[in-house]
Nucleic acid binder design. Structure first.
Ligand SMILES: [Mn+2]
Ligand SMILES: [Mn+2]
Ligand SMILES: [Mn+2]
Ligand SMILES: [Mn+2]
Lengths: 218, 218
DNA sequence: AATTATTTTTAGCTTTGCCTAAAATAAAAC
DNA sequence: GTTTTATTTTAGGCAAAGCTAAAAATAATT
């Protein structure tokens, strides 16, 4: 198991996020990692030499099985650190991403294993995203967008999309957290907004908000 | 408050360790960071441009006040992470240094502050080394080498030198830990080894071991 | 003081990783 | 089926960070 640079790991993670094993275009990758297309061209060339990706010029880049393994191990670290930051250090879930972006590159199998144990062997991170297992297996991606439920459903929030800090601020303002349960009281025929009810009252959620909040029947 | 590369930070930390603010020779610095002299020459030139050091060619390199501030902040992070790894994740004190060497470069004031709190505002790390305060103040460097105490003294182990993994292994084998208390039962006139006694029995410590273990009268 | 030995710097090269601008290719429009 | 547009790759630069080998400066010995 070789050692990789931070840049390389960020490319691998971006590729996994965009394609999950399928080919990704130069442009999309450039956008994701925040670099110019020309930089991406040479970056993936280097990754190809390390057998982490397959490159077909003008066509696209694709993770190899080893690349996928690496991507998952980085994602595992990222989400474990996010869990640590929120559960143990009390960070807000909107603050942890950039920090995990750094911490995910710390190299130590032992550290990851111990962190995993210390956190109580979590299956999902503070946003409800699945934390890859040690062997690469992925826990289920939980929930459906709130808009998918019908009136009268009892639901529990299990996941939120990473839709930017304004979105997280809105969640905090509305006191919406993972684990909260609501009843779907009404669905607007006009703008598809949804009225959620709980013991403490009820409130309306815009269609945009609903699309980024995932729940399961409870 | 600019952002620095990992390499730069390692140079700054090495300079602080070697000179603590006083001039350091190119050779000593090269040895410490594990690079060749020529690499060091340009590295310190870069650091000089950032006003972190003063360089006098052929004479030596010296940390500026800003350099010292930075060095302390890195040391603070290093020792806080070591404390985390030992206290919370159960690592042995011989294993944590290389990991802290990576973690010390994570950039976030907020993270350091929260970690500090989470660990119970520690003043010393798992080896008994002082953890710099937020403002740069240094807690006292505790203890004297065991060889400095006289027969009959009641002592408590408060610090150990970082003298390599074999040293730590020996400590573990002998079950010597920070906080342990002993009575000095005898001091060999032949080889300066020391007999330490406790409720569970007694044992002899070589002069080399004694020189790397620090204690206070208790 | 002159010579030798050590240390430090310079010069020149390499790799990673990013950039801009120009050329080449693929996709879309006419 | 050309022509135009968009995407991708090449070419050429630059900075950080390391290296080796040669030159220069300092320190140590005769
Ligand atoms: Mn990252
Ligand atoms: Mn997450
Ligand atoms: Mn380090
Ligand atoms: Mn320490």
């Amino acid at each position: 198991m070789k050692t990789h640079t931070e840049s390389e790991e960020n490319y691998i993670k971006a590729l996994y996020h965009l394609g999950g094993g399928l080919p990704v275009s130069n442009g999309d990758l450039a956008q994701r990692v925040g670099a110019k297309g020309s930089s991406v061209t040479q970056a993936v060339k280097r990754l190809g030499q390390k057998d982490l990706v397959n490159v077909v010029p003008y066509k696209g880049v694709q993770l190899t099985p080893q690349g996928i393994r690496l991507a998952k191990s980085i994602l595992r670290k990222h989400r474990l650190w996010e869990t640590f930051l929120v559960d143990k250090l009390g960070f807000g879930w909107d603050e942890v991403h950039p920090l995990a972006e750094q911490l995910e590159h710390i190299q130590s199998e032992e550290l990851v294993d111990r962190l995993f144990q210390f956190l109580g062997s979590p299956k999902h991170d503070p946003h409800g995203d699945p934390i890859p297992e040690r062997d690469g297996q992925m826990p289920p991606v939980l929930g459906q967008p709130i808009g998918a439920f019908s009136k009268g459903s009892e639901i529990r929030i299990v996941r939120v999309e990473d839709a930017g800090s304004e979105f997280f601020d809105q969640l905090d303002t509305m006191n919406i957290n993972l684990g909260n349960t609501y009843e779907i009281r009404a669905i607007s025929a006009f703008d598809s907004s949804v009225e959620l009810g709980s013991s403490t009252g009820s409130f309306w959620l815009s269609q945009s908000m609903c699309a980024n909040i995932y729940a399961i029947q409870s």
